[in-house]
Amino acid sequence: MLLRFDSVVAGYGRGDILRGLDLDVPEQAVTCLVGPNGAGKSTALKTLSGLLKPRAGRILFEGDDIAGLSPARVLARGIVHVPQERSLFPLMTVWDNVLMGGHSMRDRGAVRRRAEALAERFPIVRERRNDRAGELSGGQQKVVEIARALMLRPKLILFDEPTMGLEPKTRHLIFETVARLHADGHTVLLVEQNARAGLAAADHGAVLDGGRVAIAGRGADLLADPRLGELYLGGSGPTANGSGGMNSPA
């Protein structure tokens, strides 16, 4: 097991969002976290990447407890976090944004070589290299964020709702990119509001509710589990579509 949340408690102010989260993330697989708003999906990623200090519990990565480490030290362990909101530096060029992904590397030549390799893999980086990142569409920005996240050859990539606010065609592109990362052997922990699309793209899934895992299993099995619909829509069934997050995939 690459990553394990062990009874993790975390939150903001006086309230706890994660209330004893236990979760396993296997290596070289896509694991998707779904759940209603406020279930703790994004909080789990923030706690893992060091943006939020856990109040209790352990986060074991490759067997070591990394709970409470700073974001820089978590990054140095090989975990990269692509946050929910747009995270590019809008006034920097696309190229400078990608270079920032290698900020913690000392060998500047290696940073440039890695960026060039990623520009070949993600054509938008090459095509819009000298444009300001803020001028790109939402989907293009997300692809550049993914390219930037790969600069350090991470062992684990955290995606927090990567398709939020994107049009269907672009959502499809993002899920294709996640599938490519999976095929390349990356380990991905994906948070997705669009439960159907997220679980369909994942090997494993977990449904969070009230800061704990309510159901976990293979992605395909969860999609067929009637409890998934109950958690989202109070019993509308696993195939329900609509505002509760069980939207159809792009």
Binding site: L51, P71, A72, V80, H81, P83, M100, G101, H103, R148
Partner: peptide, 10 residues
Amino acid sequence: QNPSSALLLG
């Protein structure tokens, strides 16, 4: 331009 993103990049 983006403090939390900078933090996440080390």
